[in-house]
Design a protein around this nucleic acid. Structure first.
Lengths: 199, 199
DNA sequence: GAGTAGTAACTAACTAGTTTGTTTGAGGAT
DNA sequence: ATCCTCAAACAAACTAGTTAGTTACTACTC
C-alpha cells in the first residue's frame, strides 16, 4: 500500500514552514502543496481547509514547543538558558506560536491543550517555593510566565532585538550570562529567608 | 479648501486599527478606506500602496510606542509597571509592533528609526550602573531589553497569557507586584557591592 | 476656473477550494 | 508469474469570490 502517512507528514512539514514564515493569512495553500511535493487535493482530503491545517500544525508544534526544553523548577536559570538556545535552533517554533497568538488567540492563555503538563510545572514551582528555593510570595503561574518570557528577550517574538545563530558567539555568551544571573536573582527568596524544609 | 489632512489622519487611524487587528497580509485596503470614511483612491494618492501605508502607520506608532512610557533608569520597576499598564490601555501598539517583527523584521533590532532615544536610555542605564544602582556586570542594552520584555509577560505579544482590562483587578495587582519585585531584584547590584560614587 | 477632494465602476491578478480523469502500487486470488 | 481490485496519489483545469491597484468622472472651495 502506498504510504499515505508519508504524504501527510510532508504536508504538515511544509505547512509548518509556510505558516511560520507567512502566518495564516499570508500562507499560500499552493506553495504548501508544491513544497510538500504533494497534491492540493490531497491536502484538502487530509486537513479539510487552510484553518484546520493550521490547527493540525499548531497542535503538533505546541507539543514540541512545550517539550523541547524540559522544565526544571530547581534550576530556573538553566531552564531559561535552554530556552534561549532553543529559540536559536528552532526559531520557527516561536514564530508559529506568535502567529497563533496574533491571528487566533488575542487574549488569555495561548496553549490550553496540555493542562497536565502545565499543572506539573506549577506544582514543581510550588514545591521549590516550599523548599525555600523560589520566592513563595510569587504565584507559580507568574513565575513560569516571567521566566519563560525573560528567556524570549532575544527570540523571534522579541519587540527589541531578535538574535540569530549568525550573531557572534560573544553576544550569545553575554546574553546567556545576563539571563542566567537575572533569572537567578529575580526568583530567589529574599535574603535572610530560611528554608522551612517541610511544614 | 477641503481638509485633506483630516482625511489623511482618518486613513492613518483606520489603517492602524486594521493592521493591528489583521497584520499586513490580513489587512484589507477596502476595509481601511471604508472605516476611514474615505475613498480607496485617496488612500493610494496619499500612501502609494499597502506596504508604504503600513510603513507610515508603523513609523508613527513606533514613536508612540517608544514614548508612551517615559524611561526612568533610576526606577526600573516603575518603568516596568508603566509598561504593563500601557499594554492594557494600548494593546494595539504591541500588536502592531509584533506584526512588524513577524512580517517585516525577522531578525535584529525592530526599531532603528530613533537612535537618539535609544542612546539616551542606554546612557541613563550606564549612569545608574556607575552610581551603583544597577548591576554594572550587565550590558545596558541587555538591561533595557530584559526589563521591557519582562513587562510584556502578559502583553498581547505574550506566548503564555495575555492580560486584558476585563481581568479581575486582583490579577492585575498580583502581576504588578510580582513584576516590580522581580525587576527590582534582577537588576540590582549584588549584595555587598558599594556604590563607587564617581570614579 | 483651477486645483483639490471625493466617488464608483473597473481591471487584472490572485486565491481557496473543487472536480475530473488518470496513474501508481500493494495485496489477494488464481 | 499474472490478473484484478482498490485506495492513495497526481496533474490540470475550473469556479467563484476576493483583492490590490487604476481610471474616468463629479463636486467642492477658493
Amino acid at each position: 500500500m502506498k504510504d499515505g502517512n508519508a504524504t501527510r507528514r510532508r504536508l504538515l512539514d511544509a505547512a509548518a514552514a509556510e505558516f511560520a514564515a507567512y502566518g495564516i493569512a499570508g500562507a499560500r495553500v499552493d506553495r504548501i502543496s508544491a513544497n510538500a511535493k504533494a497534491n492540493k487535493a490531497q491536502l484538502y482530503a487530509y486537513f479539510g481547509d487552510k484553518d484546520r491545517l493550521f490547527d493540525a500544525v499548531f497542535q503538533e508544534q505546541a507539543d514540541e514547543l512545550v517539550n523541547v526544553v524540559p522544565f526544571s523548577a530547581d534550576d530556573l536559570p538553566g531552564y531559561a538558558l535552554a530556552l534561549y538556545d532553543a529559540c536559536l535552533t528552532r526559531p520557527n517554533l516561536v514564530r508559529l506560536a506568535t502567529w497563533a497568538r496574533l491571528e487566533r488567540v488575542p487574549a488569555g492563555a495561548l496553549v490550553t491543550s496540555m493542562p497536565e503538563q502545565a499543572e506539573r510545572k506549577l506544582a514543581a514551582i510550588s514545591d521549590m517555593q516550599r523548599a525555600g528555593r523560589i520566592d513563595p510570595a510569587l504565584a507559580p503561574e507568574d513565575v513560569l510566565a516571567m521566566v519563560s518570557m525573560f528567556a524570549l528577550t532575544w527570540s523571534p517574538a522579541s519587540l527589541f532585538h531578535t538574535a540569530t545563530q549568525a550573531d557572534p558567539e560573544a553576544d550569545h555568551e553575554r546574553r546567556r550570562q545576563a539571563l542566567a544571573e537575572a533569572v537567578r536573582r529575580a526568583f530567589s527568596p529574599p535574603e535572610g529567608t530560611a528554608a522551612t524544609g517541610r511544614s
